[in-house]
Structure formats: C-alpha cells, structure tokens
Design a protein around this nucleic acid. Structure first.
Lengths: 246, 246
DNA sequence: GGGGATTTGTCCGTATGTATC
DNA sequence: CGATACATACGGACAAATCCC
C-alpha cells in the first residue's frame, strides 16, 4: 500500500532503471511471492486491479518482461513466470552484431575470442576432474559426430552436447548456457548473412576427437592446445567466408 | 523497397522467435535503413501507419525493444535507436540470481567462476602485448586505488577502469562490457541482499597491485596467479557474507 | 465434437504530461 | 511564455486463442 518499499527492491538505487514502474512492481511481485519458473502469474485483470493501472499499462510491462524471458505469455491461456534464460542475451547480441553493418566479421571475431578464452580456461579446470564414465560419454558423442560427418550431415546438436557434457562436472549451470548463447549468436548471424554451413565436417569432428584424446591422456596442456586449434579452425572459416562475400 | 525481404531477416526460420510480429518488423526496419545507435526512429504515429497496426501494438513492441536496449524512448520527445548494450543481460541475470531463493550464493559463485576463467585467460593474452604506456596508465589507476583505500573510500569506478584499460589492447569491445555486466550483477545482488560494501579496501588494492607487478615483470604465470588470487578473495568474501546472513 | 467461459490480442477515442523551440 | 510535437495513460469494445465440461 505505502510507497515505503524503496529499500530491498530490484532497483540499484536512485539510478534510472528500466522504463516503467509497473514493470518493476511485477518483478517484485514474483520475487516477493517466491514464484518459481513456470508458476502461473495473476491475470491481466487481476494485475490492473492490484496495481491500480489500466490494462494497457499492465500489458506494456508484461511485454517488456516477456522480452527479458521473465514472464511467458500464452495467448488465450494465461501468463506464467519465465525461465529467465539467456535468450534475450542472444537476441540482443545478434541484433548488435547485425547492426554493425560492414563490421560484422570483427564483431563475430570478438564473440569467438570470448568463447575461446572461456573454453580454454574451462577445459583446463575440468581436465583433471573428468572420470572414466564422463570420458566414455564424450567418446560416444564423438563417435556419433564422426558417423554424421561421414554421412555428410551437419551435427550442431552433437556439438552442443559435447561441450555441455564436457563441462557438466563443474556444476555450473551458467557455463553451458553462456556457451550455447555465443554459439547461437554466431550461427544465427551466419545464417542471416547466408554463409555456407560447415564446409569441413570431418575436420570439425577431428578437432573434437583431438580434445578427447588429450583429455584421456590427462594432458591438460595438450587439451588446451586442441581447444585453441578447434577455435582457430572456426575463425579461419569465418574470415574466409566474409572475404568471399566481400 | 519491396516486401521481398523474407530472406535475410532476423528470423532463424520457422522457429518461433521473439514475441510479436511488430517487434520483428521494427527491428528489421532498423537493420534495413542502417540506422546507427542514437538515430531517431519514426514516431509512434508513423509506425502505426507504415506497419498498419494500432498505436497500442506499436507501443507494446517498442516497450519490448526498449527492454532489450534496441530502442530508447524519451518521454515527450521521441524514440531513438538504442545502444544494444548488455544491460538487458544484467537485468536478466540479476533477476535470475535473486529468484533462485536460498541458492543465490551458488548462483553468484557461478557468475564469479565465469568471470574468473575469462580474466585468467585474458590476462594471459594481454600480458605480452602490454607496452610501457599502458603499464603506466594502469599504475596511475592503482595509485588512485591505494589513495582511495587509505581514505576508506570504496572505488568501484577505479576497479572497472583498471580492468577496462587492462584489456583495451585486445581491441575487443565485447570483453569490457561482459566483465562490467558480471560485475554489475554481482554488486546489484549484493546490494539487494544488504551485504556490506568491500570490507577490505586495502586488500583489494593490493590484489590489483600484485597483478600489475607481475605484468611489469612480464611474468605471465604470476599474473595469472595474481588474478586468481584476486577472485579467490572476492569468493571468500561472498561466502563469508552469505554465511553471516544465514 | 460442441459450446461456453476465461484469458490474451488488437483496436479506437480521448485526455494528460512532458520536452523542444 | 505559448505553441507544437510527442509519448503516457485510461476506458471500453470486440476478436482470437485456449481450455474445460
């Protein structure tokens, strides 16, 4: 009722935050009620009554929160608490890359560099902790990669699966999501720009095989080098493509 | 000119993409017209006429795009192309962390780990390329840090400045923004949770000094270790705080 | 499968607040 | 200060989608 909730809100302080007040109030509502992802939100009518604003204002706030994947709106059904995934990050980074017209090769290079640094450091941390069971799982993924490569089929899903399994033992849920986000941006931009799909499937499969081989040998340095080579390959391909387009 | 831009759109294909149709059309409008950040957008009236939708739909789409920092709306003035910054990422990650009630220490630990891996790898890449001029700039920042620490004042801005200058030679604009994003999430969550501000300013200043010393000696390994220690300190403080609160 | 209830999507008209010149 | 252009907000109405009985 009172406006004395300046403390303990999401706001950073006096700084101007995201557009509307309603938006923050809805976020706060989720936090206050401890609503988990997937839980049903109040209907628009309930919100306009409890927040004492018009339905238009409620809808605008919900639309903004939907863009951040904080709520999920289903037409004719209801509104639910969202997954708070990194998809807004992917959308934003994709747009940002596409908007830097003529310089998107550099922008993609930046994304690749970040991912490369990340994975190089991560593989170092995970190399010693990987057990035989995990290595066998990775072996399985690699074999399916090699089979797909021989069949001339791309294997984006296997790629994702490899990197996810590789870092699972970290117990860090943010890592695979971040990596997937970078991967999505890269391939979405490539798709929009009309670049060809992986022209060298067998090479890509071999890069992954090299990483696994190094991990099996418990050779951290070699694993790091293999990971670096993996990215060097992607980078070279990207540059080649952009040069070809230009 | 024509409506033949079904190809080369933002859409990945048939997959359900970001919320509404209008939203995508406005994004596409920015890309098609090559509007740079800060450029004025069509007014709401112009958009509702050119897109043939009501004012309400236009406003909802713009609100969503504003949440992604793709457009910037100034009340009573106009709408402008946004900076496409990482602030939506910060908002989303902050909410996500706060929403995982009772487990936010772990969530913060995940963020710290990612930042630690990133900076450890980055400092390695930048160590050899740093010239005397850059080192002197860093020295200046450190000295201001030490002065602030002696005066008992926190120096978040100097912290940010140090890490930005450190990685400037990479020529990667994404890196400092990503690091700043993680930093913002961390401190915003800490603020909401009511944790105390840096209890050990002199220690924090010394960690940074250690990094610079290692860099001056061109000792990559030592720089990496110093960076790791820097984060170990943050981590310990975070855990201590959460334990104290609980 | 039909029909009614609920909920979100879209639209219109109007009034108000705000920034620029 | 006034004039103008623009975003903000409200209320009402109807369409579309979904669910449940």
């Amino acid at each position: 009722m009172s406006d004395e909730r300046r403390n303990a809100t999401v706001s950073t302080g006096r700084e101007r935050r995201v557009g509307s007040q309603v938006q923050r109030e809805v976020m706060q509502l989720i936090l206050d009620r401890r609503l988990p992802a997937g839980a049903p939100m109040p209907t628009e009518v309930e919100l306009m009554e409890s927040l004492k604003v018009s339905r238009n204002s409620v809808r605008e706030a919900l639309k903004a929160l939907q863009a951040l994947d904080i709520v999920e709106i289903r037409h004719g059904y209801g509104t639910y608490v969202g997954q708070a995934s990194l998809s807004p990050f992917v959308d934003g980074l994709t747009f940002r890359t596409l908007a830097r017209e003529g310089d998107d090769a550099h922008a993609l290079g930046e994304i690749l560099q970040v991912r490369e640094v990340l994975e190089e450091g991560l593989v170092r941390r995970v190399a010693e902790a990987l057990g035989d069971a995990e290595l066998d799982e990775l072996e399985d993924v690699i074999q399916r990669m090699e089979a797909a490569a021989r069949a001339g089929e791309a294997f984006p899903e296997l790629d994702r699966e490899f990197h996810e399994k590789l870092y699972r033992s970290l117990g860090n849920a943010l890592v695979p999501q971040l990596l997937a986000a970078f991967w999505n941006v890269f391939h979405r931009v490539a798709g929009v720009r009309g670049w060809t799909e992986d022209p060298s499937l067998t090479v890509t499969a071999r890069r992954h095989r090299d990483i696994l081989t190094a991990l099996r040998a418990r050779d951290v340095e070699q694993a790091q080098r293999a990971m670096a080579d993996h990215f060097r390959g992607i980078e070279a391909r990207a540059w080649q493509e952009t040069l070809g387009v230009k």
